[in-house]
């Protein structure tokens, strides 16, 4: 039977709940091994960061939607197996101790949850108990502002996140793709973007290889 928008949203929510219940709220044994293989074990720092960013998110989310604040899932998806195969290394100390990587990953996970539950409802105007209008546009790129994360860094995790979570619904993949396009087309080109510094550095280092001659 044809899917109504409500049915599609309900299915996405059901799928997300299954995914979250199946994966639990602790690092998988697989991820724990990667943590142990690191020169500096990032477990404690990851736990602390998830805690502090979780609090930050809850505060801002609470301010935005009013007092009906939601509980927050606490999971860091790994997706490192493909990296191990690709690079033939098991020590991901640098990556797994990188705060920007953690923040981007958590932002991506929260964006998935908000897109699944929120859809268009977060866009509607709202008022707090005191009758004061509250911030209600929680659509992307709101999460970047909450975590003070650059779009350029958020962009880096999108593809790996989708690859690592094959059960994401079609609508959510589409949503992440829209975020990606928005970053590519506008947000990454704003004045304070780290992209410009990177372009400058690449240029100073000189061209790595000759461009291919144009085809006839």
């Amino acid at each position: 039977p044809p899917q109504t928008p409500v049915r599609a949203a309900m299915n996405s929510i059901a799928q997300l709940r299954v995914d979250l219940i199946t994966s639990g709220d602790q690092p998988s044994s697989n991820l724990a091994v990667y943590f142990k293989n690191c020169t500096v074990d990032p477990t404690e720092e990851v736990l602390q960061r998830v805690e502090s960013l979780g609090l930050l998110f809850s505060q801002r989310f609470g301010q935005a939607v009013g007092p009906r604040c939601v509980g927050l899932g606490k999971q860091v998806p790994p997706g490192l197996n493909t990296e191990e195969k690709r690079l033939s290394v098991q020590n991901f100390s640098k990556l797994l101790n990188d705060s920007t990587f953690h923040t981007s990953l958590l932002a991506c996970a929260l964006e998935v949850v908000m897109a699944t539950y929120g859809g268009s409802t977060f866009k509607n105007g709202g008022y707090s108990n005191g009758g004061v209008p509250v911030e209600t546009d929680l659509c992307f790129p709101w999460i970047l502002d909450v975590f003070q994360l650059t779009a350029f860094d958020f962009y880096k995790v999108i593809e790996s996140f989708i690859k690592a979570e094959p059960s994401l619904s079609k609508d959510i993949v589409k949503h992440l793709e829209r975020c990606e396009h928005l970053i590519m087309e506008t947000i990454a080109w704003r004045e304070d973007s780290p992209l410009f510094e990177l372009l400058k550095r690449t240029r100073e280092e000189g061209p790595v290889e000759q461009a291919e001659p144009p085809a006839t």
Binding site: L95, T100, E159, S160, V173, K174, L176, E177
Partner: peptide, 21 residues
Amino acid sequence: SHSYHFGLEEHEGITELFDSD
């Protein structure tokens, strides 16, 4: 139907993307 277009090549991944060296 909808499928995500994967842009990274086989030899690229998240490790390099976060490596600023």
